[in-house]
Structures are given as structure tokens and as C-alpha cells.
């Protein structure tokens, strides 16, 4: 529930709210290690990035951390060694498998950070198309995908899209709390992007595990009306932010009608 937005909407109805950019003096916290690791079923190259938090007013938000020893081992006893390709970006060549359990280990300055993620089975959509709805007199187009959610187990999804030649952009994460086992229709919209007929859109649907969902859900449920915003839960425990996610992904292209 985006309460604050709702209230602004009401205030907007009385046409009274206003918005402007302001200067705020924010503290510079001690830099904190950030670990982001993913294992995908579609890619032959897996990637782990290491960085540190920066001050709010720094214009380059990525402060790479080099010289770490990064490995991922799977449930069959295989260990993949990552190499640092560019500063802070570590890669290894292997392909992720569904239902496999992966353990990420990062060794840095005598500390070891570990996290575990199990890749969920792949669930794919069986249709993709364009939908239209009218909101306050304006037509809004969206991409609608349909899929059957497996019954009797919790499932978590993450959606990304790329519109025309733009960058791949994460939309949001969902779970099947209210539609377990249903034939689900997911309407994908992005309030920053107006779709028009002829746009080419590539949708990525990722089946993620609970920890990755919790991470992104914490990010997306923090809004201006959140009483106490906090860092999303870290899988690495105290001392490092970020997450490690093994996901099963499918990609669907479509053209906006």
C-alpha cells in the first residue's frame, strides 16, 4: 500500500500539493561492503560484483572492491573460481541449473562472506500481449503475460524489461501469496515509460528464491510513506550488504499493439 501516494493523490484532487528539489545535509557513513552475486540458468557466464557504499552526493555510485577471492560451489561438489575482469566485477564460466543449491564465498581482507541460494524450477509464461486501460481519461498500455503458478509451493518472480534500445530495467518482484496455483495474468507497467504501438519490448521473467524476493521486496516496499526505511535484509549477515540469487529465467520478446 502506497499510503503516501494515495494521500498526495487526494491532495492532488484538491490541487494543492507541490514538489521541489531541496538541499539536505546528509552524513557520510563509513563505507560498507556490498556483494551482489547471481547465477542464471540462461547464461554461461556468472557474475559477482563487489563495491563499497559511497556518500549520497558522490556522482559515481559504484566504488569497486578489488583483490577478493570469489568462489561458487554447487551441491555436486563442484567449485567455480571467479576472476576479476574489471575492477570489482568477478566472473566465472558455468551455467546454472534449476533446483541446484549454490554457495557463494567471498574472501576479502581476512573476512569470509557466504550466502546460499537454490535455483527454483523454471516457470514460463504461455502468452504475452498488449493490454490497454483508461485511467483519468488517459489511455495506458501495458504488457500482459500469463502463466500457471504451481500449486502448493511458494513461488517468487522478478520481472525486467527492455523497451526498444533502452537498458534492461527491473520492474518489480511478486509472490503467489494470494494466487497460489492459479492461472495468473501479470500486467507489466512502468510509470516512467509510456508504451506506444510499435515499441519492441523484451520481457525477462525470473523465478527467484525467497531471500532474493525479500531483498527486492524490501526495496520496492520502501516509499516516501514508510515510517522507518531500512536496508534490505542482507544474506551475508552484518558486515556486508547485498544479495546472492540463483534464478531461472526466460525471455520473451513482443511488439506493443
Amino acid at each position: 500500500m502506497k499510503q503516501a501516494y494515495l494521500i498526495i493523490l487526494i491532495a492532488g484532487f484538491f490541487s494543492v500539493s507541490c514538489e521541489d528539489v531541496i538541499d539536505i545535509n546528509l552524513n557520510d557513513a563509513d563505507p560498507q561492503l556490498v556483494i551482489v552475486g547471481t547465477v542464471s540458468n540462461r547464461s554461461y557466464e556468472q557474475r559477482v560484483t563487489l563495491s563499497r557504499t559511497v556518500a549520497f552526493d558522490v556522482s559515481e555510485p559504484f566504488d569497486p572492491v578489488s583483490g577478493a577471492t570469489v568462489t561458487v560451489s554447487d551441491g555436486r561438489g563442484q567449485t567455480f573460481q571467479f576472476v576479476e575482469r574489471t575492477p570489482g566485477v568477478y566472473v566465472a564460466n558455468f551455467r546454472g541449473r534449476e533446483r541446484e543449491r549454490y554457495e557463494l564465498s567471498v574472501q576479502l581482507e581476512g573476512q569470509v562472506y557466504t550466502a546460499i541460494s537454490t535455483m527454483p524450477p523454471l516457470i514460463t509464461a504461455d502468452s504475452i500481449g498488449t493490454g490497454v486501460r483508461t485511467l483519468f481519461g488517459e489511455e495506458q498500455k501495458f504488457i500482459s503475460i500469463r502463466y500457471a503458478d504451481p500449486a502448493g509451493m511458494p513461488n517468487y518472480y522478478r520481472y525486467l524489461w527492455r523497451v526498444n534500445n533502452g537498458a534492461m530495467k527491473m520492474l518489480y518482484v511478486t509472490q503467489d501469496k494470494f494466487n497460489d496455483g492459479r492461472y495468473v495474468s501479470e500486467d507489466l507497467v512502468d510509470f516512467d515509460t509510456d508504451l506506444v504501438a510499435g515499441d519492441s519490448v523484451v520481457v525477462r521473467m525470473q523465478c527467484i528464491d525467497k531471500a532474493a524476493f525479500d531483498f527486492w521486496n524490501a526495496v520496492q516496499s520502501t516509499n516516501p510513506g514508510t515510517a522507518a526505511p531500512a536496508n534490505p535484509p542482507s544474506m551475508f549477515g552484518a558486515g556486508a550488504l547485498g544479495y546472492f540469487s540463483a534464478y531461472a529465467e526466460s525471455e520473451m520478446p513482443t511488439e506493443v499493439q
Partner: peptide, 19 residues
């Protein structure tokens, strides 16, 4: 209120760091 005291990027997205 709780404001960020830093920031970081995850998957191309800027997230706020709260202390």
C-alpha cells in the same frame, strides 16, 4: 526521520544506505 547516509548500486539500481 530516517534518511540515507550513503548509497550503493545493485543491478544498475541505486539503493540508499541507512545507518
Amino acid at each position: 526521520v530516517t534518511f540515507p547516509s550513503g548509497k550503493y548500486t545493485v543491478d544498475g539500481r541505486t539503493l540508499w544506505y541507512y545507518t
